[in-house]
């Protein structure tokens, strides 16, 4: 069973690598550069099949953009330059991982904000729910004693 699970998890890790390009001749001869190209491509949205990256999509436009990524890498452009080149043409939308700036600030900060709100609310509830009981008044003490004596 354990081995089976292990095999399953190993299989999960192999899938991203096999998603890449349509045909092997699209790939760069230098494996390190090709890997870099795939990393860049996995962060760029295919504008045709909008929930896929250009590395995963078979749309002709995605193929063209993959080609441009590889071409620019070979010309010595940095991944940052290539992303900027894409954003200039297709807008922030092409990034699958949006950059942090005024418009996306709420998007990025929402998890932290909601965690803070939740912690604040939890603290308030915690404090309120456990008020220690007031000590017995002498009258209550007498009543209790008399009740206990009855037994």
């Amino acid at each position: 069973m354990r081995r089976l699970l292990l095999a399953f998890f190993l299989l999960l890790f192999t899938i991203p690598a096999s998603l890449a390009v349509d045909t092997p001749d699209e790939m760069l001869p230098d494996p390190a550069l090709e890997q870099k190209a795939q990393q860049i491509g996995q962060q760029l949205r295919c504008l045709v099949c909008q929930n896929e990256s250009i590395e995963e999509s078979s749309a002709p436009l995605a193929r063209d953009l993959r080609h441009i990524v590889r071409q620019q890498l070979q010309q010595g452009h940095s991944p940052k330059d290539i992303e900027a080149w894409m954003v200039q043409r297709y807008g922030e939308f092409i990034r699958l991982r949006p950059a942090f700036y005024a418009v996306t600030a709420l998007l990025w900060l929402m998890p932290v904000l909601s965690l803070m709100v939740a912690l604040g609310l939890a603290r308030r509830l915690w404090r309120r729910s456990a008020p220690s009981p007031a000590p017995l008044t002498p009258e209550e003490r007498r009543t209790l004693d008399s009740l206990l004596k009855k037994d």
Binding site: L47, V48, P60, L61, D64, L65, R89
Partner: peptide, 12 residues
């Protein structure tokens, strides 16, 4: 080649 279209930000 569709290269100019990419410069214009054309998606289709």
């Amino acid at each position: 080649e569709g290269q100019a279209a990419i410069d214009w930000g054309v998606t289709g």
